[in-house]
Amino acid sequence: DLSALRVEEVQNVINAMQKILECPICLELIKEPVSTKCDHIFCKFCMLKLLNQKKGPSQCPLCKNDITKRSLQESTRFSQLVEELLKIICAFQLDTGLEYANSYNFAKKENNSPEHLKDEVSIIQSMGYRNRAKRLLQSEPENPSLQETSLSVQLSNLGTVRTLRTKQRIQPQRTSVYIELGSDSSEDTVNKATYCSVGDQELLQITPQGTRDEISLDSAKKAACEFSETDVTNTEHHQPSNNDLNTTEKRAAERHPEKYQGSSVSNLHVEPCGTNTHASSLQHENSSLLLTKDRMNVEKAEF
């Protein structure tokens, strides 16, 4: 173990290094160091905050020279020094078990990766560091076993998940096959086929009936047209017969005018059967003409 005197000496050296690497504005270890034209180094955030307070150039807090945003430059070497100082402080805390008085939040800088452990060898070769390295080497064999167990647990979990997924996939297939086998029997399929065939026959029977009705309507229309044509021909046949009657009536009127007047009046009210309204109107006109002729003949006879 380190003596108290040596611990104090190391602590004083760390404090001196820390004062050199402090920012003059925030009085902390410089984060993202930036250098000016006057070779003074500050935190990048502190300098941008200072420049944004005034429009135009501002003055350096140490030498009062003008500073602009374009004049600022990043210093990589200074950032490396800060990183190495942080590593020294971490090693000091691990070796002594004491917390550094002016320690900052170094938890963000710590890294437990194997590459980081290899890099620590180049920091300080001390008894405390050696003991700590031995402890780490002793704890390393235990870690692979834990990793193997965790991997086995994960693989077993994956296997159970896969088996569950396969079961879920197989179950719908089985149910679907069961439904297909038990849903419709052979008799049901035959009945469905016969039902479809009967429906098709009914459709075939319905369509000819409609065509037959249309044919019957067409035949009825044709018969009505033929009947009207026969009526017209009958009226045409009746007209010459009426003319013959008129000639006979004229002759009778010349011989017996008194008797014919009474008979002509009675004939006005008689309509021949089986004739249309057109034929009756023609008869009325003929009878009126005959009456006028008879009157003329009677007057001539009187004179």
Rank of each mutant, 00 (worst) to 15 (best):
R6T: 06
V7T: 02
E9F: 04
E9W: 05
M17K: 15
M17W: 12
L21W: 03
C23A: 15
P24C: 01
C26V: 15
C26W: 15
C26N: 15
C26T: 15
L29P: 01
E32D: 05
E32G: 10
P33Q: 13
V34M: 12
T36D: 12
T36E: 08
K37E: 00
C38Q: 15
C38H: 14
I41K: 05
I41D: 12
I41Q: 09
K44W: 03
K44F: 02
C46S: 14
M47V: 07
L48K: 11
K49V: 03
L51V: 06
N52C: 04
K55N: 10
P57L: 07
Q59Y: 04
P61L: 06
N65F: 10
T68K: 13
R70V: 06
Q73F: 05
E74A: 14
T76M: 11
T76A: 03
F78Q: 13
F78M: 06
L81P: 14
L81C: 02
E83V: 09
I89P: 09
F92N: 14
L94S: 13
E99I: 05
Y100C: 01
Y100H: 04
A101P: 02
N102P: 12
N102L: 08
N105M: 15
K109G: 04
K118S: 06
K118W: 15
I123A: 14
I123G: 13
Q125A: 03
Q125C: 15
S126K: 08
R132C: 05
K134N: 07
R135H: 07
L136M: 11
L137K: 06
Q138W: 02
Q138H: 06
P141D: 12
N143I: 06
S145A: 04
E148G: 03
T149K: 12
L151K: 12
Q154H: 03
S156N: 05
T163P: 11
Q168C: 12
S176P: 12
D188Q: 07
V190G: 06
Y195L: 08
S197A: 06
S197D: 01
D200G: 07
E202L: 00
E202T: 12
L203S: 09
I206C: 02
T207N: 01
P208S: 11
P208F: 01
T211P: 15
D213N: 09
K222M: 07
C225S: 13
C225T: 06
E236G: 00
H238N: 11
S241C: 05
L245W: 00
T247N: 02
E249I: 11
R255S: 14
H256I: 14
P257T: 09
G262D: 12
S264G: 06
V265Y: 03
V265R: 03
S266L: 01
S266P: 06
E271G: 05
C273D: 08
N276V: 08
T277H: 08
H284P: 10
E285P: 01
K300R: 00
